[in-house]
Design a protein around this nucleic acid. Structure first.
Lengths: 234, 234
DNA sequence: AATTTTTCCATTTTCCAAAATATTGACAGG
DNA sequence: CCTGTCAATATTTTGGAAAATGGAAAAATT
């Protein structure tokens, strides 16, 4: 067993497996934000030698999922309002660009994929109460993410799509927070209607969809920021 | 001696030094694009053991300056028109966002830095003929880059600025090509006037500067694309 | 002759122990 | 009582040797 929060991320070399497992753990919040990671704990946790671990860590540093200081190990970046705003700002700029490309280049398959993803999202509704519905919420999040991915998937820009994915992953780190306060987050927003309208505009290739997407993401940003503030994260 | 095209990049650990040296060599084109890198050549070249090399490579993979395939080593990504367009697209979206933030948050120091950078750029003019003026061109490029950096430097978004830097580095790889054809690139463009106008609009906090910057970068993109096409790069 | 299987070799990947560097706590001097 | 120095300890970093892997040549089978 390699990962503690993911069954078994496929990857040929050990270093890749550890990379995947460590990344999952960071995104899932299994490694508390702001904490320093001791090498020997990680060695124990991922059951490997120093080389694969070090390689995995170095790669995550390159992708900003970890912060490194010479001779002082690595830390999981801590949460902050500024950081959330930073990430969402980038995400909005990039997704808008990608969506603009997608509505130019998208074909029938793309439209089909969007409809399918939208449908799957509506079929896994966000539970009204967030009591012990952790699984349901997580399923919804997964489908929600794949809906957004489908929107921009037709953009012929691998780098752009990769960067967007990276930013989405960054926001993923705040998921625990989002889940804790999903009730408030929904206040004043009809999520389903919002997405359906977005979907319609996109498929109609209406340029207004760019603004709508930007607004949609900005609302999410505001919700997350509000949550951090209320959760009193340093 | 660690680096082959850079004197001695400061860095505490060996891995960091190798990282810097390898990155420099990639950006400077010392490692031909598209070529596979043999581990033992790199070991020889950077005069270090496998561990620091491996770590440096892993980090560069995370930043997309190298492509890795399991058990088949790493390659320097090859040049392509699509890639240039991809990178510039991202760069434009991000720099526009950053400049918008900068003209909101910029203070007097920021304005001063822009004026200084603009002045330095004008004092190191691009030579008319690109005969053996390699050094002069490279000095101009350095100052040109620092001018553009100064424009967005006031944006309070570390992630955004880092990403922009990364994209500029990516375009840096095509520098050899740009130099080879700098004559053509200048045709029909008054670079000095273009930059001065940009500078004036930015300092006046005129929102029109966003469009101008985007156009400016787009022209550069077109010039680079034309060069690649004429250089018949696969 | 074509196709599959086997063997060998170059290369990457991994482990491990030694070296380098930070951090902690104690202790002497101001 | 505070401050700075020095040793002891903990942690990270590095080099080299061993293991694993993929690809290509050689052998064997159809």
């Amino acid at each position: 067993m390699i990962s503690l929060s993911n069954p078994s991320p496929p990857g040929r070399t050990l270093a890749e497996q550890v990379y995947g497992a460590l990344k999952s753990d960071i995104l899932a919040g299994a490694l508390t934000a702001g904490s320093a990671l001791l090498t020997r704990d990680l060695l124990e946790r991922y059951h490997c030698g120093v080389s694969p671990l070090r390689e995995a860590v170095a790669r995550l540093v390159g992708e900003q999922f970890l912060e490194a200081t010479s001779h002082r190990g690595v830390r999981v970046p801590s949460f902050s309002v500024n950081d959330v705003e930073d990430v969402y700002r980038i995400r909005i700029a990039l997704e808008r660009e990608a969506l603009a490309l997608a509505i130019i280049h998208g074909d029938d398959n793309w439209e089909g994929a969007i409809l399918a993803a939208g449908h799957r999202m509506e079929k896994a509704p966000l539970p009204d109460r967030n009591e012990d519905q952790g699984h349901a919420v997580s399923e919804w999040e997964k489908r929600h993410r794949s809906f957004h991915t489908s929107l921009v998937s037709a953009a012929p820009s691998p780098r752009l799509l990769r960067l967007i994915n990276q930013m989405v992953d960054q926001t993923e780190r705040y998921r625990a927070l989002r889940l804790a306060g999903s009730d408030q987050a929904k206040i004043g927003r009809d999520i389903v209607a919002e997405h359906r309208r977005l979907m319609d505009l996109v498929i109609a290739r209406d340029p207004a969809c760019l603004e709508l997407l930007a607004d949609h993401l900005d609302h999410t940003r505001q919700a997350v920021v509000a949550l951090i503030r209320s959760a009193a994260i340093p």
